[in-house]
Amino acid sequence: MNTKEITSEIRKRLQIDAETADALFASFTNCLKEEMLNGNSLSIPGFGIFEARRKKERISINPTTKQRLLSPPKQSLAFKVSAILKDKFNN
């Protein structure tokens, strides 16, 4: 299910117009981003946890050129599925 289908589905279910739906999506992503940048994790009950994972910088070697590269540290959004959801899929 792609984004369009999801937005249309959600509008249908909540019976809201596209603007409010877009605003809600935007505010949710914004809120999620803020929490992630603050180092918080956002748990969604019955679904999973969003968290920002820090990845330390590391030295990688380009296998072809043998160049040693210092990869910078990263922070990425990670999602850990909840046990409930996992069980649902596996049964």
């Binding site: 910088e57 160049q67 210092l70 910078p72």
Partner: peptide
């Protein structure tokens, strides 16, 4: 989310 590190680039040692 990676913005704090966005300025960092891979550095060739």
């Amino acid at each position: 989310i990676n913005k704090p590190y966005a300025h960092l680039e891979t550095y060739v040692l």
